[in-house]
Design a protein around this nucleic acid. Structure first.
Lengths: 354, 354
DNA sequence: CGATCTTTTGACATATGTCAATTATAGTGG
DNA sequence: CCACTATAATTGACATATGTCAAAAGATCG
């Protein structure tokens, strides 16, 4: 494992050199700055994994450093530990309120310092990972945060339930009891327009979570979830979900980002629905299905989906969808066997002109 | 102003009575619990504005209380102050890491206690307010957080710029420099489909912020912002925006909620676009405009909008929109004078059948 | 194997987009 | 302030893409 980069900001030369030595002995890569201004510059440039900073310094004090760094996205979430002789309650409180992650008072021993660093790094490690920027990344993210064991344990617990094909999991208007984890099978979520027609807003695959939007909104479900095939689903209680999402500021941040990306994606979908031809819409629906459900390593993608569902993804009438599928079949873009559709030419389908 | 409710959880009778007395003298409404279990129950039931809690208690200790309360949405954001004789560093750190807001060590004097409470209440007061649940509530929210003075000051600064009608503020693909505040005028944001047709995704009115989605995504703009009429716009630097959004966990939480609601609204829009008739779509577009731009206290709402823009809100061809407007005119639902449209019968327009 | 549900095809109506011509409006400069 | 011009709104004529209804063919399930 690569050694972590730590930035140490401390004006006292002896203190700085001593501390740096300890850190280096512990296997960290250390940069040092002898005053606040220099520290901020180094932080911006080197993007260390953790920052240790004295409070009382000439030029720019520790509070100032923290304030400046917290204004920049790139450095805002870097763990920040104050290191100071100011053991007084007021100072301490000020530091924590400004968003420091820890506050070590001098004198401290090596073990104490290293423990503090270790614990902060461990916490931030999880969040540093690059999750897929899409809302689907949530799945990856949650499972990572919860840890594999917990997850496995979860599905071994009694809340695991089997669903038949086309069975309803929750309905528009219900109150959420938690987040669903799809152990096996596929699920669609859809909303119904006033003319009774349904539109599919979400598709979920094995190993993914769904049904969190209502929890985040703190309201009722505004969609209905139904299985697309036989499935095994378990419920993560909402208390666990909330404590996961809100306990840690960085997790909240990830959620904000994921939701923003999701919002953007829906907007793109809006233009397509508004102005694309049925031909293009159906092609897009097939592409969506492919991207959502493809298994790595298989050449041509086959899916078993009802024409009605496909039409509800595309946002068009079932018969129109079927006719378009026939066209695609004639053009050798897809192959159809009963309700199974196989994509033969992904790229041509994807780049279909309107 | 109504007095705030504080819940005091403390097992030592003398200590509890003394502290409660101080708090009552200071004008707070105090509930007391003599152990952790009782405290949690009371917190759930009474939903106090602030909780003060001892750490060492029989049955359920302070850490346990905090943990339980943080799992419930309703109590998770209630300010929580630990009150304890355990002045040791490790205890203290544990408490803060679990999400306590402050940590007072015994013995403390009255002033110290009251100050701590006052500062926490002040901080949480802002967040307790009920902002409109829509994404538009952001505006209200930011201005409240920033404070009226700052806002006014902002628009008095040099970054204020005047824009002519139909002038571009930013374009798809640009990198955001901050959030825009619309001091005067109206703005639309739109995305362009592959066939070159535009679709309007956002409408903004005086006193509102826009252009924050790209910042939250930490990416480029994926929409283009253009003024609908002459406007005055100023820029809130992104650093300020980020520190606003991420500094405080509760603000982040608000954002998560707002974005979730926004996502849900876009999904509803999707069904409408997919299955509604042009007639219905145009009516919806007019209703949207009304809701977005109506001034309180005026009977019939008039707006000056180009037919093209209206069509791009509805997601239909300009000529179709115009024809539908003519129909509405014949049906006395609206009145048209030049490019000005007046809504005569809001309710009929709103409940139009498909 | 029959009954039920789904898919496919056919025939048809029409809602909506497109292109072009005409009329109205608003912005500009003298 | 008026005339002129560019731009926007409206109307007409038309083609067609797409939805609807109905019936036939096929698949699925107990």
């Amino acid at each position: 494992m690569m050694s972590k980069r730590i930035l140490l900001i401390e004006d006292n030369t002896e203190m700085r050199e001593n501390t740096a030595e300890i850190l280096e002995l512990a296997g960290y890569k250390v940069s040092t700055a002898m005053n606040g201004r220099e520290g901020v510059e180094l932080a911006q440039k080197e993007k260390p994994e953790l920052i240790i900073c004295d409070i009382m310094m000439p030029q720019l004090d520790g509070y100032g450093v923290l304030l400046l760094l917290s204004k920049n996205v790139e450095t805002a979430s870097t763990p920040f530990i104050f290191l100071t002789a100011k053991a007084e309650r007021t100072d301490f409180r000020k530091g924590m309120e400004m968003g420091a992650d820890d506050y070590l008072t001098k004198p401290f021993d090596d073990v104490e310092l290293l423990n503090a660093i270790e614990s902060r790094l461990k916490k931030s490690d999880l969040l540093r990972k690059e999750f897929s920027k899409s809302i689907e990344g949530l799945n990856e993210f949650i499972s990572d945060v919860k840890g594999f064991d917990t997850l496995k344990q979860l599905s071994e617990e009694k809340e695991l339930r089997e669903y038949r094909k086309r069975e309803e999991i929750y309905r528009e208007g219900n109150y959420p009891r938690g987040v669903y984890f799809l152990n096996k099978g596929k699920v669609k979520t859809s909303i119904t327009g006033e003319n009774g027609k349904e539109f599919i807003t979400g598709l979920y695959n094995e190993g993914e979570f769904f049904g969190y939007l209502a929890l985040l909104e703190e309201g009722k479900y505004n969609e209905t979830a139904v299985t697309l095939e036989d499935a095994e689903i378990c419920l993560l209680p909402k208390e666990d979900f909330y404590s996961l999402v809100y306990k840690n500021a960085d997790v909240s941040k990830k959620f904000i980002k994921m939701l923003s990306v999701g919002l953007h994606e829906k907007e793109e979908q809006l233009v397509k629905l508004a102005y694309n031809s049925v031909r293009k819409k159906v092609a897009d629906a097939l592409i969506t299905l492919h991207n959502r459900f493809v298994k790595e390593g298989s050449d041509n993608f086959t899916i078993n989906i009802s024409r009605e569902d496909l039409a509800n993804i595309a946002g068009t009438a079932t018969e129109s969808t079927i006719r378009t599928l026939s066209d695609f079949k004639d053009e050798k873009l897809i192959e159809v066997h009963a309700s199974k559709i196989t994509i033969l030419n992904y790229n041509k389908l994807k780049d279909l002109k309107n």
